[in-house]
Design a protein around this nucleic acid. Structure first.
Length: 119
RNA sequence: CUGGAUGGCUGAUCGGGCGCGUUUUUGAUGUGUAAACGGUGUGCGCUGCGUCUUGAUUUGUGACCAUCGGUCAUGUCCCCGUAGCGGCCUUGAGUUUACGCAGCAAUGACGCGCUCGGUAGGAAAGUCCGGACUCCACAAGGCAACGGUGCCGGGUAAUGCCCGGCGGGGGUAACCCCAGGGACAGCGCCACAGAGAACAGACUACCUGACCCCGGUCAGGAAAAGGUGAAACGGUGGGGUAAGAGCCCACCGCGCGAGCGGCAACGCAAGCGGCACGGCAAGCCCCACCGGGAGCAAUGCCAAAUAGGGACCGCGCGUCGCAAGACAGGGCUGCUUGAGCCCGAGCAGGUCCGGGUUGGCAGCUAUAGCGCGUCUGGUAACAGGCGCGUCAGAUGAAUGGUCAUCCAUCCGCGUGGCAACACACGGGGGACAGAAUCCGGCUUACAGGCCA
RNA sequence: GCUCCCUUAGCUCAACUGGAUAGAGCAGUCGACUUCUAAUCGACAGGCUGAGGGUUCGAGUCCUUCAGGGAGCG
């Protein structure tokens, strides 16, 4: 069992915009945006993660639930397979992020991470 | 009314405990430095003394052994001891104070680890009302403007909320609904239709008389009938009349209303009036009552960052002059003088603007407390007493993710049964919805259960 | 947290101080013109005025409770 990397959460709007302009990959359960930071950017931990669930996802309950599932998935997948020096932004999708079976959601995240790294 | 249950694995956050590390403060201990006090004569300098003390000197002198040196005595100097004088402080011991260091203990903060416990709602929602709290403004209060409320009584911290009553409307009834003051303060509106729409008037038709003449015209009477409309000047019956008419009478309606009941809204009502007084105030408005404004991104503190900017005010700014400048004054060079150069203004002030920051801490979660139980008062809302329990504090925003079982419930199929239904198997599967300073209401959403 | 505005035909907008049938342009359908199309001309259809409740004789308009959309301030 590999060690889990600690993750910090993105808080700045500019970080989100930069990640959205970089690489992106969609799946049924979620949408991933990621970029490799330049070395001079300061960061507390090597991997940073942000979550985006807009009003398109649903009402407040649905948005919170989607964000919580994305957080748990990021802890599971990005903690092991994330690359140091990268920012990841996980975007929730309407209904699918909440309703998709847990194993499929994890598979979606692994698939998008692989695609983004190899792109 | 209620807002699924249990367990496993694994997370988030808050709080308590324990351990470790870093650090703040305090305490006593040890130690270092400095100062003061204190007492003493140590140490210091000079002089003197000394068979008691240590060394130096053999190039001070003498003697001996002897050979290039050694031993002894004495001298000198140092050390040591002691006495006197000088200087009064350096030093040593002690005490106190200040500062620093070390480990220890207590305490607070932060971080990490382990462990224990708490962790969304009935509507957390909409933001429609009412408050608490904080800041600003004004200070008894009144008026004006603006906004709101609007039967009466009670409840409440308060309300536009709740309870009870009254009035009106609907319903066979149980019961339900009502923004329900004022139209005699004033203004305005009432389309179309209709003769006439707000204060009286008269289109058709009616009656009488006159004229032309056989159906109309004119004058007068009268307001019942017709039709229109949401709304048309009381209704029915009788008398009366040329025809009619509250013109008269009875009943009903309407208005005024002595008196009685009720805290009040209001109700009952003798009697009187021949009918006069339309509707709209969720049109303007009048009356009564209520309301200062902003909101936890309030407010206070810390840190970081940028700029040492602009405007106005205040204080100050030597004299003359509108100004240029001149004369005083100060500084520097130079120096015997003459001379030359420079300064001649700002501020540690207040308000506003501009610029920068978008971090942290407090406010911050427990009290008009709330919840449960019980008793008392009250028709009730509610109030009071007693007992027990203590109940989320996040900030890209925690309170979860996932798996399994059960329950409410739904679907399919099978068996039993006349049926409602019961049992077995398989499958689906949790409604509305996420705190953001707090509280009381209202409104809206909603799986399920119960009552009328 | 606070404040304000809008919703009318498929689309963009009107409708006065409450008054009867809610109007215009574009788009649509049909017809005319043309060899055909476009343009033009004529005709037609299309609306329970976002939803519910109320005031009024009468509501797109006034009041109220919601729904959806938008704007502004701190």
């Amino acid at each position: 069992m590999t060690e889990r990397q600690p993750l910090t959460v993105l808080t700045k709007r500019a970080d989100f915009l930069r990640a959205a302009r970089a690489r992106r990959q969609g799946a049924k359960g979620l949408h991933l945006q990621a970029r490799e930071r330049s070395p001079e950017e300061p960061s507390e931990t090597p991997i940073r993660v942000g979550y985006t669930c807009s009003k398109k996802v649903g009402n407040a309950v649905a948005r919170n639930r989607a964000k919580r599932r994305l957080r748990e998935a990021a802890r599971e997948v990005l903690g092991r397979e994330g690359r140091e020096g990268w920012d990841y932004v996980l975007v929730g999708r309407h209904q699918d992020t909440v309703a998709r079976p847990w194993a499929d959601l994890l598979a979606d995240l692994r698939y998008t991470v692989r695609k983004v790294h190899s792109a």
